[in-house]
Amino acid sequence: MKLVSVLGAVFRRDWTMMKRYIVNSVSTLVSIYMIFILIFAGLQSMSGYVKTGALEGSLEGTIIGFFVWTFTIYAFSNLAWNLTNEAQTGTLEQLYLAPCGFKWVAASTLISDFVFSFVPIMLLLAAMMATTGKWLRVDLASLVPLLLITLLGAYGVGFALGGLALVFKRIQALFQIMQFVFVGLLVIPMRVPAAKYMPLVLGNDLIRRAMVDGVRMWRLPPGDILTAVAVGAAYLAVGVAVFSWCERVAKNRGLLGHY
């Protein structure tokens, strides 16, 4: 099947690239870890001060927040930056010449990005847990589907902004800011009205329940899971629709390769 061979090729490309950019990847992870250490130190001095243990729960929350945030950033920036970079260098046009259609090349890239970022981010999680001595429940059978559900929203935003940046180059300035928007989304408490209809929020909450309380995925309220899937899928659909519109405009104005 041709689609599978395209997926395989994309995997090989990304594996090669990962090896070539290993220093970058490691230093990104290390800096995320450093930030975490700083926050952890801050939390510790605060809890030492308060003494009541009121902040107990927030340490786990912070670890999970960092963990999900890192995944989100990877998902979003791989998508948006790669689109922009490839348009500038010219490889995007070559990808658009794939007989399976660009959409499948993009989907393959998402899948491979997820797979290749999984191991390093799990290592980051292990490092965070080892540093704090807080061991969370890591049940992959529950975690992976929940992560994917959560990331749907990030992919949607990535498609939308990546597409918009093809047409309006200035949009790139938003890419950096999105990291902070994601932080905001990940710290919104569930009691805020309509929070669960925002991207990432409900998924993040489900991951928390699975990792802190040790609830297996199939024990989580099906209504919540369905809502999370529906919300994620909706954001992804809107993102893809925005992207398709931008692609049309880019083809009209000849912007797929603006080197």
Binding site: T16, R20, T89
Partner: peptide
Amino acid sequence: LEGSRNLYWRMSVWENVAFFSALH
């Protein structure tokens, strides 16, 4: 295509050839 890179600069010649051919 003119003026464009057409290739991934961080990959070898062979890796590029194999990748883009596989897309086809």
